[in-house]
């Protein structure tokens, strides 16, 4: 673990810039997947169109930096907040429904955002997206952006970890496991779910901002449902009942996609095969499987029980 942290810290110094870029992309996708897992794994909500908040964060910063005189630092803060506001509105509408209907309502609202973005040429650039987004002078080289992404990711992970381990996080997991019972003992279920959606869309927006920092462009496909399901795959691959699982899943998917695409144009087929093998043989994900193997399964189960009990008391 310590070795891994040293490698991550020193990577841009000894590795070629291409590897630095790939690893930065892993961190961006990892943050996106972890933010989805807040509502999916911990909240048990069918957040089918999480990618839309990622896209909104990216478009928000792109539009602010290209079309307004607002200073860059304000744009970096404003974009995730705009994503969180969309999360508030879309979430407020969606939590009226549950399960599959929740997911479908979210897909229809997300599609609305997607279709407007891809048609509004005067404002969003339509299908062409926005390119050559200006970045502040200290974020121009690959090395600088790598460390920026690493720092933001570390802070985000720390905050998300606090959220999960807080009484709020415990209540959220209790709602996931037994919503009726929580309702019965006076927990405001929808209120908690809505807050979780807002927090998750905020961090999805942060991931969108980091993506723009890395790529300096945005395009409407970031808001399309296919991307959202790919984030789902990252969560499943890593294990969606574990905190770090989605980060690992994102790492595996992004690295495989990058290197497989060098040799073949049929990456999506390989992704599909991996997904089906996972569902058949490893539904608990890589991290979930590893935790099970080192015998922490019993401990984890105990922890879940404690969490549910704590949640029940809140």
């Amino acid at each position: 673990m310590a070795l891994f942290i040293v490698v991550v810290l020193l990577l841009p110094i000894f590795a070629p810039s291409f590897y630095t870029y790939v690893f930065a992309l892993v961190m961006v996708n990892g943050l996106l997947a972890m933010s989805l897992n807040l509502v999916l794994g911990y909240g048990g909500l069918y957040q089918f169109h999480h990618g839309v908040f990622y896209g909104i964060g990216a478009y928000a910063i792109a539009l602010i930096l290209t079309k307004s005189p607002v200073p860059w630092w304000l744009a970096f803060i404003a974009a995730p907040i705009i994503a969180a506001l969309f999360g508030l509105v879309i979430g407020w509408i969606c939590i009226r429904s549950t399960q599959l209907y929740f997911g479908m309502l979210q897909i229809s609202l997300g599609s609305l955002v997607w279709i407007i973005t891809s048609r509004w040429y005067d404002f969003t650039g339509g299908d062409n997206g926005i390119n050559n987004i200006p970045m502040p002078s200290f974020l121009t080289s690959g090395k600088e952006i790598y460390y920026f992404i690493l720092a933001v990711l570390a802070i985000s992970i720390a905050v998300m970890y606090r959220v999960v381990k807080s009484p709020f996080g415990a209540t959220l997991q209790a709602i996931r496991d037994n919503p009726q019972r929580c309702e019965a003992i006076g927990v405001n279920v929808r209120h908690h779910q809505l807050i979780a959606i807002v927090i998750a869309s905020f961090f999805a927006g942060v991931a969108g901002v980091l993506y723009v920092g890395l790529e300096r462009s945005v395009f409407p496909d970031m808001l399309f449902w296919v991307l959202s399901l790919e984030v789902f795959v990252m969560c499943l691959l890593g294990g969606w009942f574990t905190f770090a699982g989605p980060l690992v899943g994102a790492g595996i998917i992004v690295i495989l996609r990058t290197f497989v695409s060098i040799y073949t144009e049929y990456w999506t087929m390989i992704e599909g095969i991996i997904l089906i093998l996972l569902i058949f043989f490893l539904p608990q994900g890589v991290v979930g499987f590893a935790l099970g193997r080192v015998g922490r399964k019993a401990q984890a189960a105990e922890e879940t029980v404690q969490v549910s009990e704590r949640g029940a008391k809140v």
Partner: peptide
């Protein structure tokens, strides 16, 4: 017997595979 989420992801996997098979 699996939950809906798994079935959605499973059929998404089939979609990815069929997409490339059509391309081939």
């Amino acid at each position: 017997q699996r939950e809906h989420l798994m079935l959605i992801l499973f059929t998404f996997g089939i979609m990815l595979i069929l997409n490339d098979l059509v391309k081939i």
